[in-house]
Simulated scan of single mutants.
Amino acid sequence: MSINKLSIIIPVYNEARTIHQILDLLRELTLVNNIEKEIIIVNDCSTDESVEVIQSYAARHPQMGVRLLQHSVNKGKGAALHTGIREATGEYVVIQDADLEYDPEEYNLLLKPVLRGFADVVYGSRFMGGNPHRILFFWHSIGNAVLTFLSNMFTDLNLTDIETCYKLFRRDIIQGLKLEENRFGFEPEVTAKVSRVPNVRIYEVGISYYGRTYAEGKKIGWRDGFRAIYCIVKYGLFR
């Protein structure tokens, strides 16, 4: 399959310390088959200097064509993704966090089953394959395994990591979903809804994970885990 453009959606909330490093990685990245990169950043009403950093970077590197969209109030990561997805124009859309937990070089791993004509949706799993994985929190890994297990029960998929950031979607599929969750409930919601797309082909590939601690800026907490369980049941039972 031929792809001309990949839309990269980056939700941002108080990531002034790292966003320029992610943009550096994207600037240096060469996608397989020289696929064009469309970079869409959605600032979710940051209270630090994220906007200034992004605007300064975009001015220094106009060839990247960075698009900055802004929320006037903080709505959550899911809401930022909704905004970016609506504006995407590439044949495929990938999600990129603004921190340094994931390596954009691995977009080419996500694209491989698409370019070979096998996949419409690809998840990047932190828990399969032999790629580097930072050792962090035991109970987080147990929580993630429980959420993935519960999600799989309702979707009848056999994913290993529904909470991964790296999700690649065919644009018409992701734009065709009615997404509602404004925070971290986005992950189980989009998984439930994409699993019901007729004849959708979902693949999973192993990726690296350079996780952050809370001291380093990690934001997801136990409340988000309970919300995820609620979303799994809500979108799994009530269609």
Results as ranks from 00 to 15, higher is better:
4 N>Q: 13
14 N>M: 07
14 N>S: 12
19 I>V: 14
20 H>C: 14
23 L>A: 04
26 L>M: 10
37 K>V: 10
45 C>K: 14
48 D>W: 07
50 S>P: 09
51 V>R: 10
51 V>K: 13
60 R>L: 13
73 V>Q: 13
75 K>W: 04
75 K>F: 09
78 G>S: 12
78 G>F: 08
80 A>L: 06
83 T>M: 11
85 I>S: 04
86 R>S: 13
89 T>G: 07
89 T>P: 00
90 G>S: 12
90 G>L: 09
91 E>C: 07
96 Q>T: 08
100 L>K: 11
103 D>L: 05
104 P>K: 07
112 K>R: 15
139 W>A: 06
139 W>Y: 10
141 S>T: 14
147 L>G: 05
147 L>I: 02
148 T>L: 00
149 F>G: 09
154 F>R: 03
160 T>A: 01
163 E>N: 15
165 C>P: 01
166 Y>E: 01
166 Y>D: 00
167 K>H: 04
170 R>P: 05
171 R>G: 06
172 D>F: 00
181 E>C: 05
187 E>M: 11
203 Y>I: 00
203 Y>F: 15
205 V>H: 08
211 G>V: 02
212 R>Y: 15
213 T>N: 08
214 Y>W: 09
216 E>F: 05
218 K>T: 01
218 K>A: 14
221 G>H: 09
221 G>Y: 05
223 R>N: 14
225 G>F: 15
227 R>G: 04
228 A>N: 10
234 K>M: 07
